[in-house]
Design a protein around this nucleic acid. Structure first.
Lengths: 226, 226
DNA sequence: AAATGGAGTTAAATTTCGTTAAAAAGCTCT
DNA sequence: AGAGCTTTTTAACGAAATTTAACTCCATTT
């Protein structure tokens, strides 16, 4: 089931929450300070973040901003003892999906989590086994790219990258996301490697001028077609 | 802007809310009982419903269920004096997007409404795929600006900024909004950067004198055309 | 009209990306 | 195991996009 990143510095509450959510079949990673939480987010992928507002080192709001810069659409729920209005507003303007003020019941939290995940999920689709890219047909399973000019066998990396591009056809495929998905680690060298593969894919696709892999500076790539 | 269906039987609070939201540029239809609200919903289309839980004739929760049967994905926010947990859960299980307990501040409500609309919009609203700016045609997806004189490829930032200007054609695009949307963070340097891009866009557009990017001092920019 | 802060413009600096080629790592097959 | 192949990574360099800096100009306020 879904994987949740929990940032809560109150150890007791944190463990309580983590245990409860685990019992409800979520995978939970519990961190107790902002910096650690961010580090964890960089190295693993999550479906949802549950962030306390008051955290050591990096507060929840700043943390959410940083997390959003890495993965724009990840759902975030803030946990906060302060029911002060200012905080609420700051939370929402940071793009949070929800917040919940302490004290709250476990059940209420669960309902909110499920509501948000349902919403997020209903927009992500399942895998296609053939993608149409202009005059090309791409079969991710067999890693073959066909067109009227012939058939091109793709390497694993080429195929995976093209698959991600296809899933996000006409919208931005984020570099970090692609790197974390295909290369697992998104360091400098892997990023360079990905550039090389973009060049290769562009070469394969260049015979149809209606197909373009557009760079979105600092963000990622967009596969344009149709 | 967005059209809101407000169901609130407390006349004073209802009028207060309606006026406030109208002042914020929403269109508001105010109803004071559940049945009327439902009837109204059947005959007009809305972007969002704001429902009091306790309403004469049909209560808010049942109302939401009926409304959802008509339009499955319409965002609903419940207004409720009861902060009892049972209600909250019932609300969410009815598929509501949010609820807010009285007393709440107008500002808080506004932020919630905007958060939900932003979310709903990001999935449903179809971005125009061509904008006409005087003698130019602008294709935001491919980042291309065409005119009789030729075709200009725009960079990502140029394109995003022009897109925002087009969406707000002939009205003010606020600096802060643009900065938060495109640059995420609205600090001094990003503001400077945006100025640079305004200059670039002006250069691209200067061959048509009927097109102007007007500065509105201290507020933002207005794209004038037609 | 002087002061203040926002805006306009240009150029330099920095960062990110594109491309090619070479090096390294993985396979396969005898 | 190692020759010969493919795939992936690293390196290097040039190009493009974006940010920062510097300076000028303009609008608003006092």
């Amino acid at each position: 089931m879904a994987k949740i990143l929990l940032a809560e510095d109150d150890i007791n509450l944190g463990i309580l929450l983590a245990d409860y959510l685990k019992a409800k079949d979520f995978t939970v990673v519990h961190r107790t300070d902002g910096q650690e939480t961010l580090d964890t987010f960089r190295t693993e992928t999550f479906d949802l973040c549950l962030l306390d507002i008051m955290l050591p080192r990096i507060d929840g709001i700043s943390l959410a901003r940083k997390i959003r810069k890495i993965e724009k659409d990840i759902p975030v729920i803030f946990l906060t003892a302060k029911s002060l209005e200012k905080d609420k507003i700051e939370g929402f303007s940071a793009g949070a999906d929800d917040y919940i003020t302490k004290p709250f019941s476990m059940e209420e939290l669960l309902y909110r989590i499920e509501a948000i995940l349902r919403r997020a999920r209903s927009y992500s689709e399942e895998e296609a086994d053939v993608y149409t890219i202009g005059k090309f047909s791409f079969y991710p399973l067999t890693q073959i790219l066909n067109s009227d000019e012939g058939s091109q066998k793709l390497t694993t990396k080429e195929s995976e990258l093209l698959k991600l591009l296809c899933r996000n056809k006409n919208e931005v495929l984020e570099r970090n996301y692609a790197l974390r998905t295909i290369w697992v680690d998104d360091n400098y060298f892997n990023a360079r490697s990905m550039d090389v593969y973009i060049t290769k894919l562009r070469k394969y696709l260049k015979s149809d001028p209606s197909v373009t892999i557009l760079n979105v500076h600092g963000k990622g790539y967009k596969l344009l077609c149709e």
